[in-house]
Design a protein around this nucleic acid. Structure first.
Length: 847
RNA sequence: GGGGCGUUAGCUCAGUUGGUAGAGCGCAUGCUCGACAAGCAUGAGGUCAGUGGUUCGACCCCACUACGCCCCACCA
């Protein structure tokens, strides 16, 4: 059989089972069964606008392994699938695919029709048109993901799906938020917020990452009122106009005498207080630093603590704002000069302003020494390209800072696999320094369901919230009027305006257990499906998805959202780097399934333990493919015999059953311990070694002779090991099961093997002793470079007394296996070794 | 700067409670046995990162060091 043909057959076989499972509803959740026999998965909804990645295959397989095991253990499995389609990744994709931008001020155009890959000028479209394009893109993406999951053989119940932008998700997200509002845990705040100037949206702590980059220390001389001067080293000279104070450490001898005096900023001539502050480190820079509005989180913190004014100079677009200086002038000793300097910076981007202000400082002779390069860590939005700024905006926050202890406690109630990832969760909780900002100034997301009153004078009264009644949800306050109002009153005096912001994508995906459970209206379903059993996810989103989900459940009713969290590692390339698109080393999952088959790809994923980063290695997939073939061939042999056989009676057969019993016990314990890789390795070692290489060879002769003990044991071994393999290799095992053991139902609905269901048997060492004799004779044949079929004229086995006794019962099989004519089995004392000597004959030439 | 994980054969990885190191791939030498050449048999190949300690005995426990990966950190 050619390789190509074999591959075709494999592909057809897998496709056939895919269809069968779907048609038979093999993986359907049974809503009538009780809660304690139910295993619920809080499936990660993949970001559908991302690319299909080998990492997906890896981690989703891990989930499916455990799911299949639990199902065979008799659990009623609830294994849904969600799509994470709301949020920035989708918006960005739509912008690229259709070459459009959203302009919320435009009216909806129902006739707008765009083709993907549209060329020419970027088109501005209305918010509703934009959202329609988002919907279109995600539907296409979801199809591709579904196809991959099905080809991979994930045992998902496809009648249970959701998307984070669908009606149900919007309903749950908005309703849960209204509960937080009611309990006072969510509130509107005008405060400095981390702000991405490109996306022009607020971002939360969890979406921020530090990136190392080169900064430049500029040394700026400040005068002190009444004479004297000092030098500040700063990497952000453009914030000089925003400087509201100067601080040094209270013990710093260089500056102690200045505390209480005022410094004069160069260029802007603004007198600012000089404070003593413990946070200033004498070794850093010159030991004295500016407090600005706002250079970093430390500035925000000092601004709050030191009671200094705010001088906002950076606008939401990342440019130096024009209005700031003019409308509410800050104290200065030389207003015209200050205004002139500020005009030079106005409307420049931060980078440009930095260069310009340095030039101005140089002209004013306020630089003290040369600039000096330094490595610094700067905060970026994880999807952003320019550093975050702190900008005062109005945002919705969920209070979490006051709940650290309780959050830690919730984390301890969850079982983490592997356990050390709990530590990462705890580190994150302990390091929290901001409440959760849940509002985003984006479009394709779940709208924040509130309106605000417009006063008679036309100003907006944000203290007067209008919230929708529950039966109005989900609602889009930007498109629908609140109860008791008419759309014509939007923006009018005495009327209302709708909140334009949408929720952070995590604000919705942190509710996945509730989205699927039917909360809060379908109480019966909710009680059966919540809390869930298992949350699978990867480790880089412990601080987001795991953390926020724990937070939301705690805020809802003090519960934990799941009993277990299973963390999959990353797929890394041979250089130990995470495989990613940007590194150009992506392998298409569908190509791998084409080349090796789904079972083989699953075998590779299953070979890796939870939490361990794993090298992408097609050799392991090749191994998996060989295993699939081996199972097929062994089954062909076992199932070729007539009848079902009988109880194991022969000593060899009884020994095999004993070893099978040990295997089932060991493998089951490993699955229960969430060690799918160990379970697979143990199963495979037994199957390939004990079963195929040794037992099959020894029992072969009796089986051909119609011995019911041999035939029965062969079938027992096969049917048992098939079920042990079934979670990892769902296709080939079901194929063989149907041929040999199924009575119409899938192996995946068969019961997991149990030791107490296996027939009796015992292995007192006779199996290993027999194998030792086989090995010695095989070695002799191998050294003689003759065929293993070469007959043995006479076999002489010497062993200690007790070993001889054990061998007696199995010598007929040993002799048959070795093709030996006569044999002698004698006791030799004084050595614990078995010595087998064989006099080789010659293969009879065929006539 | 703080923390987590790792370092075992050429490669990818196992190694239960401390008792003389294991698998697969690759390599070598053979073998077309009535399941299977996508196979079978046999074999070569390792100072278990380093140093010190505990112990009769350490890949395993402890300390330190080196290297790799990851997470976190107010980045003047």
């Amino acid at each position: 059989m050619s390789k190509a043909k074999g591959m075709d057959e494999l592909r057809d076989m897998e496709a056939r089972w895919r269809r069968r499972w779907e048609e038979s509803g093999t993986y359907r959740y049974d809503p009538t069964r009780s809660r304690d026999e139910t295993f619920v998965v809080d499936t990660p909804p993949p970001t559908v606008s991302g690319s299909l990645h080998i990492g997906h295959v890896f981690s989703y397989t891990h989930t499916d392994l455990m799911v299949r095991y639990r199902r065979m253990q008799g659990d009623n499995v609830f294994y849904p699938m969600g799509w994470d389609d709301n949020g920035l990744p989708t918006e960005r994709r739509v912008q690229n695919v259709f070459n459009v931008r959203c302009d919320p001020s435009l009216p909806y155009d129902p006739s707008l029709s765009l083709a993907p890959g549209r060329e020419g000028e970027t088109l501005q479209v209305a918010r509703r048109n934009f959202i329609e394009l988002c919907d279109r893109v995600v539907q296409e993406d979801e199809k591709q993901f579904k196809e991959l999951w099905q080809r991979l053989g994930l045992s998902i119940d496809w009648s249970e799906t959701y998307a984070t932008i669908d009606r149900r998700s919007r309903y749950v997200s908005q309703l849960s938020f209204l509960h937080l509002l009611e309990s006072g845990e969510a509130e509107l705040r005008e405060a400095p917020t981390m702000w991405d100037v490109d996306y022009q949206t607020a971002v939360a702590q969890a979406e921020v990452e530090d990136r190392e980059r080169e900064g430049v220390f500029h040394r700026i001389r400040f005068d002190v009122e009444g004479g004297e001067s000092f030098t500040i080293a700063t990497t952000r000279p453009e914030l000089l106009p925003a400087c509201v104070a100067v601080v040094a450490h209270p013990e710093d001898e260089r500056y102690r005498h200045l505390f209480g005096k005022r410094a004069i900023t160069p260029l802007f001539h603004s007198p600012v207080p000089i404070y003593a502050d413990e946070s200033a480190e004498p070794e850093k820079g010159t030991g004295v630093l500016m407090v600005c509005t706002f250079g970093d989180a430390a500035d925000v913190e000092k601004w709050r603590r030191l009671d200094v004014p705010a001088r906002e100079v950076i606008g939401r677009d990342g440019r130096i704002a024009a209005a700031a200086w003019g409308e509410d002038p800050w104290e200065t000793l030389d207003a015209p000069a200050a205004q002139k300097a500020y005009d030079e910076l106005t409307s420049l981007f931060v980078n440009q302003a930095r260069r310009r202000v340095v030039e101005l400082l140089d002209e004013a002779d306020a630089l003290d020494g040369d600039a000096e390069k330094t490595r610094q860590f700067v905060k970026y939005y994880e999807r952003g390209e320019r550093p975050l700024e702190f900008v005062v905006t109005r945002q919705w926050f969920v209070k979490i800072l006051d709940k650290k202890e309780r959050l830690l406690e919730q984390g301890r109630r969850v079982t983490w696999h592997p356990d050390f990832f709990r530590k990462r969760y705890e580190d994150w909780v302990e390091g929290l320094n901001q409440d959760w900002c849940v509002s985003r100034q984006r479009y394709f997301g779940v709208p924040i369901p509130v309106w605000y009153r417009v006063r008679e004078d036309g100003s907006i009264d944000r203290s007067q919230l209008i919230v929708p009644p529950k039966d109005m949800l989900p609602v889009d306050p930007a498109a629908e009027p609140p109860p008791g109002f008419d759309e014509s009153q939007r923006g009018q005096p005495g009327g209302f305006i709708g909140e334009a912001d949408v929720f952070d994508t995590w604000a919705t995906s942190s509710l996945t257990p509730l989205i699927t459970s039917g909360w809060p209206d379908d109480r019966a379903r909710h009680e059966r499906l919540y809390p869930t059993s298992l949350r699978p996810q990867s480790h880089e989103i412990i601080r987001t998805w795991a953390f926020y989900t724990i937070t939301r459940s705690m805020l809802m009713d003090g519960s934990i959202p799941w009993d277990h969290v299973a963390i999959s590692g990353w797929v890394v390339d041979p250089d130990r780097k995470k495989m990613s698109k940007s590194k150009g080393n992506v392998v298409l999952p569908t190509d791998l399934i084409d080349d090796f088959g789904a079972d083989a790809v699953r075998y590779w994923a299953a070979s890796a333990r939870l939490g361990v980063d794993t090298t992408f290695d097609t050799n392991v997939m090749r191994e998996g493919k060989r295993l699939v073939t081996k199972i097929k061939n062994a089954a062909r042999f076992v199932l070729a015999f007539e009848g079902e056989g009988g109880e194991p009676e022969h000593p060899t057969d009884r020994a095999l059953v004993a070893r099978l019993r040990d295997l089932v016990e060991d493998v089951t314990a490993r699955w229960d311990d969430w060690d799918h890789a160990g379970a697979l390795a143990a199963t495979e070692a037994w199957f390939w070694g004990d079963f195929c290489d040794n037992y099959l060879e020894m029992a072969k002769g009796r089986a051909y002779a119609g011995d019911t003990s041999a035939i029965g044991t062969l079938r027992l071994g096969l049917s048992t090991v098939l079920r042990l393999f079934a979670p990892v290799l769902p296709h080939i095992t079901d194929e063989v099961w149907e041929n040999g053991f199924g009575s119409g139902d899938s192996i995946h609905r068969a019961s997991w093997p149990r030791v107490d269901e296996l027939p009796g048997g015992e292995d007192d060492g006779r199996f290993d002793a027999a194998v030792e004799v086989l090995t010695q004779v095989r070695r002799k044949k191998s050294e003689a470079k003759v065929s293993l079929r070469t007959p043995v004229d006479h076999l002489d086995v010497r062993a200690p007394h007790d070993v001889v006794r054990r061998l007696e019962g199995v010598m007929d099989d040993v002799v048959a296996t070795l093709n030996a004519g006569s044999y002698a089995l004698v006791v030799h004392e004084g050595s614990q070794d078995i010595v087998a000597e064989a006099s080789l004959g010659e293969i009879e030439k065929k006539a």
